[in-house]
Each structure stands twice: as C-alpha cells, then as structure tokens.
Design a protein around this nucleic acid. Structure first.
Length: 420
DNA sequence: TCTGGGGTCCTAGGACCC
DNA sequence: TCTGGGGTCCTAGGACCC
C-alpha cells in the first residue's frame, strides 16, 4: 500500500499558525511580486476566488469579503514543510517528498496494521506537532492514493481526513466519482482529448484501449491507466540531484535598457551558480531568455532565448554570469519593453569528474574565491558579497506588501506571548 | 499601473555515423 | 527513370506537476 499525505491549503494554513484569530477566516496567499493568487483557505475558495486570479483584479472582492491577503513567505513555508516531513518520516522508512506540501509513504510489511487507525495517527501527530492539518489517502498504488487523498480532502467530516481504498468496490466507486480532468497527470490538453472521445470519468479512462492511450498520451498515460487499475507501475522516486536549476523573474516595471536587463541576468546567473555549488556540480550549458509583457497586446511583443554550450564545465559565479551576459547581448533587441527574464543552467556533472580541456579551462582560482563568497554570504546574509556587475547600491526588491514575519527562521520575528 | 516560479518527463525530427 | 538500412544522439517543444 501507499499513503499520500497532503497538507490542506498549505500556505494558507502556515499563515494561520501564529495568527489563531484567522482560523475560519478567508485567506489568500499571493505569488512573487504580489501578482496572483497561489493559495486559498477553504473560506476563500467558497467566495469563488479562483486559483491564479490576478490580485489587482480581485482587490475589490478581497475588501468586500474581508479576505486576509498575504505575500508569499517561502522562508516560513519551507521551514514548516521540513517539520511536517520530519514527523511523516517516523511512519515509514520509505518516503518520497513529492512537493513542498505532499509526501508518499510506502507501506511494505504493514499487512497487520489497521490502515484506518494508522492514517488517523498520522493526521493526529502532524497536527499536534506542527499545527498543520493534512489529508491522508491510502491505496494500493500511488495514483489511487492520490484519488483516496482527494476524497479525504473533499469529505473531511465523513472521512475524518483519512480515506482508505482497500477494496475493488471502493476503487471503482471512487473512479466513477472522479472527473477525468481531476486525475493526477491528466492536464487540460489530455482532458480535452479524452472528452472528445466521450471519456468523462477516471473509470472511463481505465476502460480506454491501451493503444489509443499510448498514441495520444504517451507511455506516461499508459502507466497511469494501469496504476489506476490497481496495477502498481509507479514506485517511490529516489532523491536525485536536480537536472536543471532556474532563476527567472517578472519585473515590477518594464525594462527598456540593455544594462538594466544585464544586471538582472547577471544576478540570476549568480543565484543559479550558488545553488549549483550547493549540490557540488558544474554545468556545461546555460540558457538565457527575455520576454516582453505578454499581457500588453497593445505593445510590440518580443521574446527570445539562447542556449550556450560552455567551453568548459564550471560553477563559478563569475564565469557563469559572464556567459549569461554574452547570451543576453546576443538576443537583446532595443525598442521593446521587457517584463521578464530568466537564466537556466543544465548539463551537470559532479565537480569531482570535471575533465580539463586542451585550451581553455575554468579559472582554478575561482574555486577558493567562490568558497569564500559562499561562506561570507552564509554567515552574514545572502548577497552580502556580490559581483561588481550586480546591483550594488540598490537592493532589488520585489513587491511584497503583505509579508508576514518569519516566525520560525528569524530570531527577531519570534512571537511574543503575554502571560497573565 | 498591476497577471509567479521551479521543476520533470516524453516525443518527433533532424543530424550524424557506418 | 532509377539513389539503402539501421542505428545513435541531440534539441525543441509540448505536456504535466506543485
């Protein structure tokens, strides 16, 4: 059996933790730059605020309904996530952290356990130790555990936040209930295709001909079908090193000048390089892209990317940002207003396996320099030491008008309790 | 005025090899 | 008139996830 534990409205629940007066209030959390809604409490969902809603378009609705609005506080969410995962790891030696708010547990050798009870223990311990409410779905495959979890979340009263799908009768009933577009792994395009051949429910999907699925949804779709039939084809994924590392941002204003964009791109490259050094790798290529504001159809649009093969593998901020800047020079076109840019690094090899090339190699002195930079930035705050081509005077800031304190990760932000 | 960010996997098709 | 066959590797683009 597999269990899927998913935190309920995770970011909204985190914001509530140290603000108990917000329990049962409508809460939304906004994306970077306070752009759009990325999390909603149940009360906010009930008002009809959709996922991804543009914040400025919903301002009036927020006000009218007394919705509490928060800027994304990833320091808080990341730390709370770690705590939840710590608790979950007690329940099985085989765990996959699937996302910031979800984990699969593999329950091998748990035959004698009462799964219903086991699920309730998980719920109980997580809420008691972290304050975060979760839903637990237990079934014979990962895809079915996802379905079970959805039922637990949808019917918290009846299920008491735990749903165990342990018979075929329950499986079929659940699949008949689940709309095809709500299946894990079926997105908008696939749902459209399936609807076009009159497939409406997850159960219908399990009846579709294998060849059709393979042709239209590829091998991934076929695995999914089998998993939903109770034939386990998806196993826990091991933690691996990342295959790409990206830093991309939308800007609060439109940039017109090359040097403005260059500063951003260099900084993005520096962030990427930092993350790369943390996983002890070097990269062999990078991609730079720029984009005008796609929502402003009244303005001329331009977007372009370039992939650069590096002459040698490196994880030096100086070198990576130099190549990123060269790439930008190549794709930049004057006369447009740029709203977004990004740097993505890829083709990693472990630092220890870097082969020297005949003609040009990463500057060996950078290794020590980067080590010193990383150490200083770790001890004295991120971005204390920057490259000269980065923004030195002005700390580039994104819009975060409703940021909550970093209750659990910053000493000054710890709550004060008054005891009478 | 204002619309997120960071990932994974798969496939088709082109370039190349002998 | 007429032009092979069997591969591998790489990349761009599309689909999905949270």
């Amino acid at each position: 059996m597999f269990a899927l534990i998913d935190c309920n409205n995770f970011y909204a629940s985190c914001e509530r933790l140290f603000r108990p007066e917000l329990v049962s209030q409508a809460i939304v959390v906004l994306s970077n730059n306070d752009g759009c809604v990325i999390a909603r409490s149940n009360e906010a969902k009930a008002i009809g605020i959709p996922m991804g809603a543009a914040a400025f378009e919903y301002d009036a609705i927020f006000k009218k309904n007394n919705v509490y609005v928060f800027s994304a506080n990833f320091a808080l969410y990341g730390d709370m996530s770690k705590r939840v995962m710590d608790v979950l790891s007690d329940f099985s030696p085989d765990m996959e952290i699937y996302s910031i708010d979800e984990a699969f547990l593999k329950l091998k050798g748990y035959d004698r356990y009462n799964m219903e009870e086991f699920g309730k223990q998980i719920y109980q311990k997580v809420i008691q130790w972290t304050g975060i409410p979760v839903s637990v779905g237990i079934a014979s495959t990962k895809a079915l555990a996802k379905v079970a979890n959805r039922i637990a979340k949808k019917y918290p009263q009846q299920t008491k936040n735990v749903f165990v799908m342990d018979t075929d009768v329950k499986r079929i009933k659940a699949l008949r209930w689940l709309k095809v577009e709500d299946i894990w792994g079926i997105g908008r395009q696939h749902a459209k295709k399936l609807n076009s051949i009159n497939i409406k429910t997850a159960y219908d999907f399990t009846q579709v001909d294998n060849a059709w699925i393979k042709k239209n949804l590829a091998i991934v779709g076929l695995r999914l079908k089998l998993d939903l039939m109770g034939i386990a084809t998806l196993d826990l994924e091991q933690i691996r090193e990342k295959k790409i590392i990206a830093t991309t941002r939308s800007f609060d204003i439109n940039y017109k000048e090359f040097h403005e964009l260059e500063e951003r791109v260099v900084s993005f490259a520096v962030y990427c390089a930092e993350k790369l050094r943390k996983q002890n790798s070097c990269c062999n290529s990078l991609l730079v892209y720029i984009h005008s504001n796609r929502y402003r159809q009244d303005l001329p649009q331009y977007s372009r990317s370039i992939t650069i093969k590096l002459p040698y593998p490196t994880n030096s901020s100086i070198e990576i940002s130099k190549f990123a800047s060269q790439g930008l020079k190549y794709i930049f076109k004057a006369g447009y207003q740029y709203k977004k840019a990004g740097v993505i690094i890829m083709d990693f090899i472990p630092k220890s396996e870097v082969q020297l090339t005949f003609f040009e190699n990463s500057n060996p002195r950078h290794v020590l320099l980067m080590k010193a930079m990383d150490k200083l930035n770790t001890n004295f705050g991120q971005q204390k030491i920057k490259l000269g081509s980065q923004d030195i005077k002005r700390v580039w800031k994104m819009k975060q008008e409703k940021l909550s304190p970093r209750y659990t990760t910053k000493l000054n932000d710890i709550i004060t309790i008054h005891v009478n």
